[in-house]
Write a protein that binds this DNA or RNA. Structure first.
Lengths: 204, 204, 204, 204
DNA sequence: GATGAATGAGCATTCATTCAT
DNA sequence: CATGAATGAATGCTCATTCAT
C-alpha cells in the first residue's frame, strides 16, 4: 500500500522541521479551522519552523495549498487506478472504482475533507492546468471500459459528461455527509449498495 | 412566495438601499469572489448604502450570510415541496423531487452556488439548529412516501441515512459540475436520466 | 502669503490627529529617513493616530506620498506664478521665476528636499497625469513670455524643451547642493547671480 | 581604462558568474526597478550565481551599491578629465568639461541614471570619504583653470561654491530630463548651446 | 433610524544576512 | 572559495466591528 501513513497523525514524526512535517501540520490545521481561517503563522507555530523556511519551500499559502492538494490527488489515484486497470469487465471496473474510492475516504478522512474544500482554490489558482490533466487521467481509463460496455450492449449510451456523476455522485454525496458527521454509517459499510446503484444507473 | 426574480440580476431594482437590494448585491459578490474574499465594504459600496445600515439590518457578516442562506433554502423548498406532496406514488415523488431540484438550480445558479459554498459557514454558526430543522422538513414528507414504497415491496429496505444520497447524489454532483462550468449540458437536459437512475438505485 | 506655515515645524499643532497633522509628521519623517526607509507605522506612531485612520485618509503609502507631493507643488506654484504673471517684460519674468524659486526653497527646505525625492515615485504612480498637467501649467505662462522675447529679438530662438533647463538648471543644481549641505551659502544669497546667468543663457 | 563597453548591455558576456557580470546585472536591475525595489535575490537570479558568492564579493547590498557607484564615477572621470587637462584656455576647459559630460551621459544612460539615484545612498554610507575625495579630484583641475581666468579678467570673481552649479547645472538638468524621457532631443544635440550658456554664465 | 470616521488586531509576504556544509 | 537553506524582524495593508453624532 502506497498511502503515506504520515498524513493520518500530526503528533509523531521527526522533530526537525521538513517539508513533510509542515504539510502534515498544515493538513491538520486546514481540517480543524478551514482553509481561510488557517494562518501561515499558525502552521509555522505548530510545525516549529520559521516563516522564512515555509516560504522557501512553498512560495506562498496558495503554493502550500496546491502542494497538499496534489499529494492528496496522487494518494487517491494510487489507490483507485489499479482497481480499474485490473478489472476484467465494466462492472468490475465500476466496483473497483467505487470500492476503492470509499476505502480511501475512510482511510484518509482529513485528506478527503481537504480535497472537497481546496478544489475551488486550486481550480482558480495557477495550477488549474495540472489539475485538469490529472482529472483527465483519472477518468480516461474508466471511460474506455464504459465504451466497451456500450458496444457490448450492457451499458446505456449517453453523453459522456454524465457518467462520472451517475457513477460516483451517490458515493461522493454520502462521503460528504459522513465527513461532516451528518450520517453515522461508514461509507465502506455500504459499498455493495453504492456499487449496485452505480451499475443500475448506467446499465441497459 | 414564488421564486423571487430579483435574485437573478443585480442591475435593476429600486435605487434606495433596502434589505432586499443589499442581499441581491451580496449574493452577486459572494458568487463572484467567494464568501471569504467578499467584504462588507465591497457590498456596501455596490449597494450604495452605509456601513451603519448594513449592521443595523444584519448584525454581522455571519448574519448576512445566514439571512441569504435561509432565503435560498426557502426558495428552493418552495419549488420542491409541492412536487413531492402532490405526487400520487413513490416514483412520482422522486420524479418531482429531482425534476424540481434540477429546475431550481438552472433557474437560480447563483443561489445554488452560494448554498454549496455557505453550507459549512452556516452549519458551524449560531443558526445550525434552524438549518437542521429545515433539512428535517425537507426530507420528512419524502421519507414517508419512501416507507410506503418499502411496505408495498417496490422500494428496497435500507438504512434511512442512505436514501438522500442515492436519490439526489447524482443530480447534485452534476449540478456542481455544471455550476463550475466543468460540463456543458444543462442539468434539466438530463432530468429523465437522473430520475430513472434515482429510481433504479432504490427500487427492488 | 498663502504658504501654509504648518509645514515648517512638526512639534506644534493640534493634539487631535487630522490629515494635516499626519502630513506634517510624514514630511518630517520622509525628510529625516528618506521615503523608502519611512514606514507607515513610524508616521502613525509620531502622529498619534491609528493605522486604520491613516488608510482611511490616504488609501496607501503611495497615496500619502502623492497628497504631500501635490501640496508641495501647489505651495511652490502659489509663490512662483504671480511673479511671472505680474512681470512687465521677459527679463522681469525670469527674475521673478528664479527669485521666487530660490525664495521658496529657502523657506521650505523640507518640502523642497521631499519634492526632489518624491518626483520619481509620483511620476511612476497612478497620479502621473495630474503631475504632467501641473507642470504644463507651471511653464505655460512663462513660455508665452519667452516667445514674445524671441519675436522682439531679445531672446534666442531654440527648441522649447531647452528653456527650462537653461533657466532653472543652475539654481536647481545649487539648491540641491545646499539642501544636502554640500555648500554653505543660502540660495537667496546669490539670486542676482542666478538671474543674470539665466538671462545671459537665453538672450541674444 | 576606457569606458567598459560591458555596461551597456546585459545579455552578452561570459556565462560564468564573476564580479563584472554581477555588476552588469545589478546595474540593469537598479535601472529597471530602482535601488530599493531591487533585491539581492533578484540580481542573484539573473546573474545565475549564488547568494554566498554575492556576499563573498560585495559584503552587503551597500557594498554592491558603492562598488557600482565608484565604477561609474571612474568611468565618467576617465572621459572628462583628459578634456580639461588638455585644454589650452578656460573656455576650452569648460567646453571640454561639458562636451565630455554630455557625451558620457548619452553613452552610458544606465550608469548616469544610477549615479543620480545612488548618490544619496553612497553619501550617507560608510564610503562618504572616498566620495568626497573623488569629487575634489573631479573639480580640482578645473578650479585652477578658472582662477587663471579670473586673474586674466575674463571670468567673474564669485564664491567658488557657485562655479559647479553655474557650469554644469543646465546640462545636468537637461540630462535628468532626457534620462526620464521628459524631453526628446539627445543632450549631445545641444552641446554648443550648453557650452555657450555655461561660458556666458561665468564670463565677465 | 441612519451615517461613516475611527479602530487595531491580525495577515501574507519580503528580504538582507548568516553560517554550516 | 562556493553554496543555498534557514532565519525572523519588519512592512504595507485588510476588514469586521464600534460608536459618537
Amino acid at each position: 500500500m502506497k498511502n503515506p501513513d504520515t498524513f493520518d497523525r500530526a503528533e509523531p514524526g521527526p522533530r526537525k522541521a521538513n517539508k513533510r512535517h509542515v504539510l502534515r501540520v498544515a493538513l491538520a490545521q486546514f481540517d480543524k479551522d478551514g482553509i481561510d481561517a488557517t494562518t501561515i503563522e499558525g502552521i509555522r507555530d505548530l510545525a516549529e519552523t520559521s516563516i522564512g523556511s515555509m516560504y522557501h519551500h512553498f512560495g506562498s499559502k496558495d503554493g502550500l495549498l496546491a502542494a497538499l492538494y496534489f499529494i492528496a490527488l496522487d494518494d487517491q489515484l494510487a489507490l483507485i487506478e489499479p482497481q480499474i486497470v485490473s478489472a476484467s469487465d465494466p462492472r468490475g471496473a465500476i466496483a473497483g472504482l467505487i470500492g476503492s474510492y470509499l476505502e480511501w475516504v475512510v482511510q484518509q478522512p482529513k485528506l478527503a475533507r481537504f480535497m472537497f474544500q481546496a478544489r475551488s482554490y486550486v481550480a482558480a489558482g495557477p495550477h488549474k492546468d495540472a489539475l485538469a490533466e490529472r482529472n483527465q487521467r483519472r477518468y480516461g481509463t474508466l471511460l474506455k471500459r464504459l465504451r466497451e460496455g456500450v458496444k457490448d450492449g450492457v451499458i446505456r449510451q449517453m453523453p459522456s459528461e454524465l457518467y462520472a456523476s451517475l457513477l460516483v455522485g451517490q458515493s461522493e454525496n454520502y462521503c460528504r455527509a459522513w465527513l461532516s458527521s451528518r450520517v453515522q454509517g461508514k461509507p465502506t459499510d455500504y459499498t455493495s449498495i453504492f456499487v449496485e446503484a452505480a451499475w443500475r444507473s448506467i446499465s441497459k
